[in-house]
């Protein structure tokens, strides 16, 4: 029995275990490099100091409130990008003229460093969470539109022929064949989009010194509290992980057979 459970445990949890051990190994290497003086501790603090800074950051810096602020901005901007990007993508898929006219521009929007346009958004929306959310939304929009178009266009022609042979209406064709078929690609777009949204939100919080984790990182860096700064960055990673875990669950719930 024990002989059987060993290999099956490794097969099931091996990749996660390997990932965690690799991370631990990297942390230990950095610890050794910093402590031996090869890496300057005023550039990168020892990982053990960062771990010790967690308690201080949580207790003294209202981390939960800042975490919540960033998460709420992320949810609003992320879902707004999905809510607006999906219909625009569907429209562009239907209209070849608009698609040809707009696709390059939307691609350029995805590649543009929107975060640097913060002065314009500050003028338009003031120094408020509105600016942060709108900038996150704008940056997150392009990947969803592009992937929506790509997903719909990559529907296998035979599935469309099945729909045609069953005399499906265009609405039935969209909701029962095109959209479900495009879902995996759309989710790739959402993952990309939410990465852009999070980067923009934390970046703008940092730049305009307002709101959640970005502002905290700014303040800690201004105080030259390097362990605290890196601990703050770890919380940003946590937000990212949290959203991606939720997204993964939603994706496997929506596409059980894939």
């Amino acid at each position: 029995m024990a002989e059987k459970s060993g290999p099956s445990f490794l097969r099931r949890n091996g990749p996660e275990l390997f990932g965690a051990l690799s991370l631990l190994a990297a942390v230990l290497v950095f610890e050794a490099l910093v402590r031996s003086g090869i890496v300057n501790r005023f550039v990168i603090p020892p990982p053990s100091d960062i771990v010790l800074a967690f308690e201080r950051v949580i207790v003294e810096e209202n981390i939960l409130g800042r975490f919540r602020d960033t998460a709420v901005e992320m949810v609003i901007a992320g879902f707004a990008a999905v809510g607006v990007g999906v219909p625009i993508g569907a429209f562009l898929y239907r209209s070849a003229l608009w698609r040809r006219a707009m696709e390059d521009w939307i691609g350029a929007l995805a590649a543009a460093p929107i975060v640097l346009a913060f002065p314009l958004f500050l003028v338009l929306f003031g120094r408020s969470p509105k600016t942060i959310i709108v900038m996150g939304f704008v940056h997150g929009l392009a990947p969803i539109i592009l992937k929506m178009v790509e997903g719909l266009a990559s529907t296998r022609p035979v599935l469309i022929n099945v729909g045609r042979s069953l005399k499906m209406t265009s609405s039935q064709m969209f909701w029962k064949i095109l959209f479900p078929s495009a879902l995996p690609v759309i989710f790739t777009g959402i993952r990309l989009s939410w990465t852009f949204v999070l980067i923009t939100i934390v970046g703008v919080e940092y730049l305009i010194n307002l709101g959640g984790l970005g502002q905290l990182i700014n303040e800690l860096a201004e105080r030259y509290d390097l362990p605290g700064t890196y601990a703050g960055i770890c919380f940003v990673v946590l937000v990212s992980v949290l959203f991606f875990v939720i997204l993964e669950r939603v994706e496997s719930w929506l596409q059980p057979g894939r």
Partner: peptide
């Protein structure tokens, strides 16, 4: 146009994976 009296089976695999 597609006729309800004709049921088509295609050469390519055409099940809905979802």
């Amino acid at each position: 146009a597609p006729h309800p009296a004709v049921g088509m089976v295609f050469q390519e695999e055409s099940t809905f994976p979802w």
